[in-house]
Amino acid sequence: MIPARRLGLLLLVAAPGCAGPRNYLGATGGPIAGKLAGFGWVVLGVALAVVVAVTGLLVAAIARHRHEPEAGGEPRRRGRGLGWIHWGGMIIPTVILVLLFFQSLGLLEQLAAAPRARVTIRLTSHRWWWDATYLAQDGRTLIPTANVLHIPAGEPVRLELETADVIHSFWIPALAGKTDLVPGQHNATWIQADTPGTYGGQCGEYCGQQHANMMLTVIAEPRAEYERWLAAEAAPAVEPAGGAAAEGAAVFAGRACAGCHTIRGTMARGRVGPDLTHLARRPTLAAGLLANSPANLATWIAAPQAVKPGAQMPHVPLPADELQALLAYLQSLQ
């Protein structure tokens, strides 16, 4: 078991791995979140104005009696006051709501249907990680990866959303709002990042024990860089020439690892956990919980249940030398 303090520290270290701020009304990265932020500010502005107005009226209504000699007294009728209800309760709110409603419908129409996209990613959610499959440009080859999406900047990307187990929700605040991934249902959404950069997000629908640690990162980069990344991702793993890495490959194949994970180009074809073919190139581990560093990788493999209690990754007891060999192998998976 790892002491709690060290683990807390680990979680803090992990923060950079989870990418930038998730403030969806501030600096947004694309047109969808940008429009939503614009509308959001309008709504919040109106909301604030209403709160201020009503609170002001309430304070004024109380304060206007403060000079009267005595509050209370005998009950009396004083005017009918129905104008308050007609104007404040009916006319003004109706006008405000109708205007905002139609604005929101316009926005809905713009955002609901995805424009034609050159990149399509099939995103499958699992407890508690994201499985992504890129449809390559030839339309047939499928390129699997996990937890980190690379997308070309400045163009729409279509996401087909499916889930392997329970309901999750796709959400990259700075790029797009939430769309649920529902069993038995094929949902789709789209994102677009105009500014290259790293956008963090996490599962938006409560999905059990590790809902809090089901992060998804989107890295937007210029088209050329994206294509380079995709080409490299499509390639199978390079077989280690020898040394510790080769021993590690044997450990991976011989121990429980290969039963759950795929490393393309080897015999490991498990489909339960994420594809690890190019693990070393990913910035994070354990669905964004840890930064991908040798120390974190060692911790994660040695005690997954301490790092991410309830995760599907079991604790596989490994002798120290096998662990070291395995680490060397995994770090060679560029």
Partner: peptide, 30 residues
């Protein structure tokens, strides 16, 4: 459902302004 959710604001607004008017026209005891 979005429209219905907005419509339901109106009865609440009516109640709020009925309360405000009651305070405005009355002599509130704190």
């Amino acid at each position: 459902f979005s429209a219905a959710s907005l419509v339901i604001t109106i009865p609440s607004a009516i109640a709020v302004f009925a309360w405000l008017a009651t305070i405005w026209l009355g002599r509130p005891e704190m």
